[in-house]
Computed example of a mutant assay.
Amino acid sequence: MPVPIVGVIGGGQLARMMVPQALELGIEIRVLAEAEGSSARLAATEVGDYRDLETVREFARGVDVVTFDHEHVPQEILRALIDDGVAVHPGPHALEFAQDKLAMRRRLTELGAPVPEWAEVRTEAELDAFIAAHGGAAVLKTPRGGYDGHGVRIVRAGSEGADWFGDFDALLVEELVDFRRELAQLVARRPSGEIVAWPLVESVQQNGVCKEVLAPAPSASPRENEVTRAIAEQIASGLDVTGVLAVELFETTDDRVLINELAMRPHNTGHWTMDGARTSQFEQHLRAVLDLPLGDASARDAASVMINILGGPQHEAITDRFAAVMARHPEAKLHTYGKSARPGRKVGHVTVSGGNLDEVAYAARAAAAMFDDEESAE
């Protein structure tokens, strides 16, 4: 039986973290990276522009299935690959809803999924009207291109969206949700329809970027776990998602859950699974896109805490601090993304798992703090 070849478009840390899982499964992995020296450079067999059809076509000719490190490949290129007979997972019909927030909100509303009150606005006057009807403040989002807090702002007047109206035909505006905490429910779905869910997790944001993930989500009731899993499974099936799907959620102060964002690929809130789950999100994604039976996604321990290393040491390599961190925190699992340090940039993460959440969280935070310095702690 020939070794299956998975082609990943995008050379970031998500592609990088698929590599060891592919090796363990006996899968060959190839990466189309955007530039030399990418995070996934060990598997970057090609460097080229994912927005150029012929570049992507040439890359796809040598693989059995195409999947993604990010969701930015243009629809016309994805559909051309489908027309060429290439297996693409997730497909363009699903990725459309991760690429365009307005399309996502329309489709989720059609499915009856719980979303914040929202509207499509084209003028400052329309935005003013929505703000006035929703307590004097709202959340404004660009339909495309937003990530890690970019393309999202809280507004209290239509004029605060003036600079964005010139760049997009329409913007997405949503109610400003009163929430207790943010949650994430990850599932994986294979083309034949099998779906497996990981435990619900809590995520903690810092300046619009995920800083911590606590797994499973502390104090989540059996009912909340049941509801969030059902929501993610409904979306995965309703949008025909293949691979990993992350559903980011708000837990509201009146005991509801509302969908915030979707990602159709391995996700930051699932990094804890590399050390804390029986099947990591990266192994599961590879299984799913190849339509192989999915693995057990249950947690290995009572608690896992993942802390993103944001910024990292500014005057030395992150790996220069590994020995000191390992000596002080032998329980910590360290992961680096092969990126240069920059304030606020995700350059790695730390995970600790164990039987007591408070002890695990303390150890994970202490280990991650050893990678900070005065210049990067902002």
Rank of each mutant, 00 (worst) to 15 (best):
R107Q: 15
L108A: 13
L108V: 14
L108F: 12
T109G: 11
E110H: 08
E110R: 09
L111S: 10
L111M: 13
L111H: 08
G112I: 07
G112E: 11
G112Y: 12
A113T: 12
P116Y: 11
E117F: 13
E117M: 13
E117W: 10
A119T: 13
V121M: 02
V121P: 00
R122K: 15
T123P: 02
E124G: 04
E124P: 03
E124I: 04
A125P: 05
E126Q: 11
E126A: 08
E126C: 05
L127G: 04
L127M: 15
L127Y: 06
A129I: 03
I131Y: 08
I131G: 03
H134K: 00
H134C: 06
G135T: 11
G135L: 12
G136K: 06
G136C: 10
A137Y: 05
A137D: 07
A138M: 12
V139D: 11
V139L: 12
V139T: 12
L140Y: 09
K141I: 01
P143G: 06
P143K: 03
P143F: 03
R144H: 15
R144S: 14
R144F: 12
G145E: 12
Y147F: 03
G149Q: 10
H150E: 13
H150D: 12
G151N: 06
G151H: 02
V152M: 10
V152S: 06
V152Y: 06
R153G: 10
I154N: 10
I154C: 11
R156P: 06
A157K: 09
A157Q: 13
G161H: 06
A162T: 15
D163V: 15
W164Q: 06
W164P: 05
F165N: 05
F165R: 10
G166T: 07
G166N: 02
F168M: 09
D169E: 15
A170V: 14
L171T: 04
L171C: 08
L172S: 05
L172E: 02
L172C: 08
V173G: 01
V173Y: 01
E174Q: 12
E174T: 08
E175D: 08
L176A: 14
V177T: 09
D178M: 11
D178E: 13
F179K: 06
R181M: 05
E182V: 04
E182R: 08
E182Y: 03
L183I: 07
L186E: 03
V187W: 00
A188S: 15
R189G: 07
R190L: 01
R190Y: 07
P191N: 13
I195F: 09
V196D: 05
A197R: 01
P199G: 01
P199F: 00
P199L: 00
L200Q: 04
V201N: 01
E202N: 09
S203Y: 05
S203K: 05
Q205N: 15
Q206P: 02
G208A: 11
G208C: 07
V209Y: 03
V209S: 08
C210T: 11
C210V: 13
C210G: 10
K211M: 14
K211W: 15
E212T: 01
V213P: 01
V213L: 01
V213A: 04
L214P: 00
A215C: 08
A215E: 00
P216A: 08
A217V: 03
P218G: 04
P218A: 07
S219E: 15
